[in-house]
């Protein structure tokens, strides 16, 4: 098919830019370990309270300034048996599932953002380099109280 030579040039440059985008995110994802949250663990969504580790959700120290924070999302809160306070510089592995409908899990000002689908576990890791007030909020519609579904997370000095 005949194509104007400038159009051909434009398509080469344009597709070239797309290839660059794909390479940048591809390398960042697969070589540097930043693939989007895609946990494969499953559980019975009606038995969350009886399934470890969600039978005792909360904060567990698992290493040098490294924590696992297990949370159960349910309409309209994130359940935890511990206070959500962590020291500055801590790396936190969030492990979350839902007891009822689909919820979202997001912490503004960070890259923490994932879907919580019932029957599935989802995980994401973030290092809190600076102290301050953070907010864990649900960003997927889950019912009348959806806009109230948020809990504070404190990073202390």
């Amino acid at each position: 098919m005949h194509m104007h030579k400038l159009e051909r040039l434009w398509l080469i440059i344009g597709s070239g830019a797309l290839v660059v985008f794909l390479l940048v995110i591809g390398v960042n994802a697969f070589a540097m370990g930043h693939t989007p949250p895609s946990d494969r663990d499953i559980l019975d969504p009606t038995q969350v309270d009886l399934t470890a580790p969600f039978d005792d959700p909360g904060l567990k120290k698992i290493g040098d300034n490294e924590y696992e924070l297990v949370l159960v999302a349910q309409a309209f809160t994130f359940q935890s048996n511990d206070e959500l306070k962590i020291p500055e510089g801590a790396t936190v592995h969030f492990k979350v599932t839902s007891k009822d409908v689909v919820h979202g899990f997001q912490i503004p000002k960070t890259n923490v953002n994932m879907m919580i689908t019932p029957g599935h576990v989802n995980t994401i890791t973030h290092t809190f380099d600076e102290a301050g007030q953070f907010l864990i909020l649900c960003n997927e519609y889950c019912g009348v109280g959806h806009q109230a579904m948020g809990v504070p997370l404190e990073v202390i000095k």
Partner: peptide, 22 residues
């Protein structure tokens, strides 16, 4: 950002998505 789908298949569909930009 969903569980249960592997990063490989997500990325493959991202590549196909970029084809539809052409």
């Amino acid at each position: 950002l969903e569980s249960g789908i592997s990063p490989f298949w997500k990325y493959l569909q991202v590549v196909l998505t970029f084809m539809v930009i052409v």
